[in-house]
């Protein structure tokens, strides 16, 4: 299936590039001369007086700094990478997280449908999304926007996406937007380092460790789907979702772009995204586009669906319909 075929790129990533039999740290150290960023880490990891834990932390951070692009990692490298994240979290906090790197299942292409007739503007989806995906609480980052529109026209220009009153308001209806996981994504095309790409199951993801924070993808997205960490993101330990995926809701750093991943940590495990599960009206429908018996396929067959800004040719896998 052409959509699932990915070209293997010529990149290796530093770890992939270096000879296997060379000790990774030694190799990394030789490279590091020009890079000021690692200097502090190097000092700590070489400091005999530092505690073993802080030395381990420094070493893991050091390795993380030099890790290659996730998409090009071997299975072992992926495992090593997620173990490192788990260990780092354990060293920095008191408790553990679970990070997976579950791959796409062959024969699956995710699609989403939004029932405009049903949405009542409750924003339960937004709340669930924030909790599920460990979004920065300080900046109140949100992936989903719910636009309150007046009857008579579908006009985002005249919609209000910051309403706070009893809903549904008389004479109004509601349209949610988020990442549409375009099949021909304009955002991934422009990334200068391929830190963002479309997975074989159609989910557009970001490797937060590879993103250099140029924000070209944000300029390229016609749907305002991408968010940037303008400062260190803050998630209280008590509110942390510990079930994480490397390409999904694991904790981000400042200076990187993030976005909706159809809750990759849930969907790849067979679950529905948090927004779908949280919606009390059933306005949100999620499933496998390649399964003719899926609900999403039923909607595409039986409802008059449309997508937003179809003229741009991004081919969103996110359809709207009415009852």
């Amino acid at each position: 299936m052409s959509v699932n075929s990915f070209r293997i790129l010529n990149n290796k990533g530093i770890e992939q590039l270096l000879e296997r039999n060379v000790d990774r740290r030694t190799a990394a150290l030789t490279m590091a001369g020009a890079l000021a960023a690692g200097a502090g880490l190097a000092a700590t990891s070489a400091n005999p007086f530092a505690s073993s834990e802080s030395r381990e932390k420094a070493r893991l951070n050091w390795d993380a700094y030099f890790q290659g692009n996730f998409r090009l990692m071997t299975e072992e490298e992926k495992t090593e990478t997620v173990r490192r994240l788990e260990r780092l979290h354990q060293l920095q906090n008191t408790d553990r997280i679970r990070v997976t790197a579950l791959d796409a299942v062959p024969g699956v292409l995710y699609g989403y449908a939004f029932n405009i007739s049903k949405c009542r503007g409750y924003m339960d989806c937004v709340r669930a999304c924030i909790a599920e995906n460990n979004q920065d609480r300080r900046s109140a980052m949100q992936y989903i926007r719910v636009h309150e529109m007046e009857h008579g026209q579908i006009s985002f220009e005249h919609a209000d996406d910051a309403y706070f009153h009893e809903v549904p308001a008389a004479g109004h209806f509601y349209v949610g937007t988020q990442c549409f996981h375009c099949q021909n994504p304009p955002c991934t095309q422009v990334c200068p380092v391929q830190a963002t790409w479309m997975e074989p199951d159609g989910i557009v993801v970001v490797d937060y460790n590879w993103c250099i924070g140029c924000r070209y993808c944000m300029a390229a997205c016609p749907y305002d789907a991408r968010r940037f960490n303008w400062a260190d993101p803050v998630v209280p330990e008590a509110e942390l979702n510990r079930n994480q995926h490397y390409l999904g809701n694991r904790l981000r750093q400042k200076g990187v772009v993030e976005k909706c991943t159809f809750c990759i940590q849930r969907s790849r495990a067979g679950g529905n995204p948090a927004c779908v599960e949280a919606c009390p009206t059933g306005a949100r429908i999620f499933g496998n586009l390649l399964d003719p018996d899926s609900e999403i396929r039923w909607v595409l067959r039986n409802k008059k669906v449309f997508r937003l800004k179809e003229d741009l040719g991004a081919e969103p896998k996110f359809w709207y319909f009415t009852d």
Binding site: L35, Y65, V193, V257
Partner: peptide, 21 residues
């Protein structure tokens, strides 16, 4: 946002997304 990661652009070490980007 991540100037320390500029090496990701260096062909061979990183990925230089040419000619796409």
């Amino acid at each position: 946002g991540g100037p320390a990661r500029l090496w990701h652009l260096i062909p061979g070490l990183g990925i230089f997304n040419f000619p796409s980007s």
